[in-house]
C-alpha cells in the first residue's frame, strides 16, 4: 500500500500539488471574512508595512511635506465646499430658506500618505501610513481634492489598506448631480460602471456623479466620476454608464480620510 502511494506520488506529484493548491486557494477565498484569516492578515500586514515604510519614506520626496500636506488639506476642503455648493445651487428652489444653510468648512480630514500601491491584477489597493491609532476605521472614505479614492477595508494600529474605486469589492450608491438619479457604481475589472439608472434619466457624457445622500460612507456629496460613455443606449430597461474617476488613482500620493465615523461593513453596497 505504502509502495503504491509512493509510486502514485512519484508519477503525479506535480498534479497532486497543483490540486492541493487549488483546493486550499478556493478554501481561503471562501473564508476571506473569517476572523482567523483577518487576525493573521492583520499580523502579517502590520509586520510587512512596518518594514516597507522605510523604503516608502526614502522613495517619497522628503522636503516640503508639511506644506504640501497643508495645501492638499485645503484643496480637499475646498472640493467638498464646491460639491456642497453645487448641490445647494441645484436644490435651492426646494429649500425653504437658505438661512438654514450652515457653513461646514470644518470637515474633519485626516491627512495620510499612500505608502504602497498594489496595482497588479486588475485591482488597485493602497496602503496608508496611518491606522487605528489615528482613528482610522473600516468603512471610512479616502478622498483627495478631486474626489473619492476608495474606502478603508482593514486597518492595524499604524497602517490601513484601502480598496480603491477600481476594486470589485467596493460597490457604492452614487447620484447623478444634474438629474439626481441614483445608481450603483462598481468596478468590473476593466471599467468603472454605474448601473440601475432608469432609461427616463437624461444622462449625458460629461455628467458628474457624486456620492449619494443614501450612501452610508459619506454624508456630504463627494465627486466620484464623470460619464465617459453610455454603454447601452438602445438596449435594456436600465442605463449602464462608464465613469472616468475624478480622482487620479494612479498619481495620488497624499490623500485624506473623511472622519465621519460610520458603522458600515466594507463589502456591502454603500
Amino acid at each position: 500500500m505504502f509502495r503504491f502511494l509512493q509510486e502514485l506520488w512519484e508519477s503525479f506529484k506535480e498534479y497532486i500539488v497543483l490540486l492541493t493548491i487549488i483546493l486550499v486557494s478556493l478554501g481561503l477565498l471562501s473564508q476571506n471574512d473569517s476572523s482567523s484569516i483577518k487576525h493573521f492578515r492583520t499580523f502579517l500586514f502590520g509586520t510587512f508595512a512596518a518594514v516597507s515604510s522605510v523604503t516608502s519614506s526614502v522613495v517619497s520626496p522628503a522636503g516640503l511635506r508639511s506644506e504640501i500636506e497643508y495645501l492638499r488639506t485645503r484643496n480637499a476642503e475646498l472640493m467638498l465646499e464646491v460639491s456642497k455648493l453645487r448641490k445647494f445651487s441645484l436644490t435651492h428652489k426646494d429649500l425653504e430658506s437658505l438661512e438654514k444653510f450652515q457653513d461646514t468648512s470644518t470637515y474633519k480630514l485626516l491627512p495620510v500618505r499612500i505608502m504602497m500601491k498594489s496595482m497588479l491584477n486588475a485591482e488597485s489597493n493602497f496602503t496608508l501610513n496611518k491606522g487605528t491609532n489615528d482613528g482610522i476605521r473600516v468603512g471610512l472614505p479616502l478622498i483627495t481634492d478631486a474626489g473619492l479614492v476608495g474606502v478603508v477595508s482593514f486597518a492595524t494600529g499604524g497602517y490601513a489598506v484601502v480598496h480603491t474605486l477600481k476594486t470589485s469589492e467596493l460597490k457604492l450608491i452614487v447620484q447623478e448631480e444634474r438629474t439626481r438619479y441614483q445608481g450603483i457604481m462598481r468596478w468590473n475589472g476593466t471599467q468603472l460602471l454605474v448601473s440601475n439608472l432608469p432609461k427616463t434619466a437624461d444622462i449625458r457624457v460629461g455628467d458628474r456623479f457624486v456620492t449619494s445622500v443614501s450612501s452610508s460612507i459619506m454624508n456630504t456629496p463627494c465627486p466620484v466620476g464623470r460619464v465617459k460613455k453610455v454603454l447601452n443606449p438602445e438596449e435594456g430597461n436600465m442605463y449602464i454608464v462608464e465613469l472616468e474617476p475624478t480622482a487620479n488613482l494612479e498619481r495620488v500620493e497624499y490623500a485624506f480620510i473623511f472622519m465621519n465615523y460610520s458603522t458600515v461593513k466594507p463589502f456591502e453596497i454603500h
Binding site: L29, F48, S118, L120, N121, N125, V161, V162, E169
Partner: peptide
C-alpha cells in the same frame, strides 16, 4: 495578505 487582495486569488 499584504496587498489587500482577496486572500487566495
Amino acid at each position: 495578505m499584504v496587498s489587500g487582495s482577496a486572500v487566495g486569488a
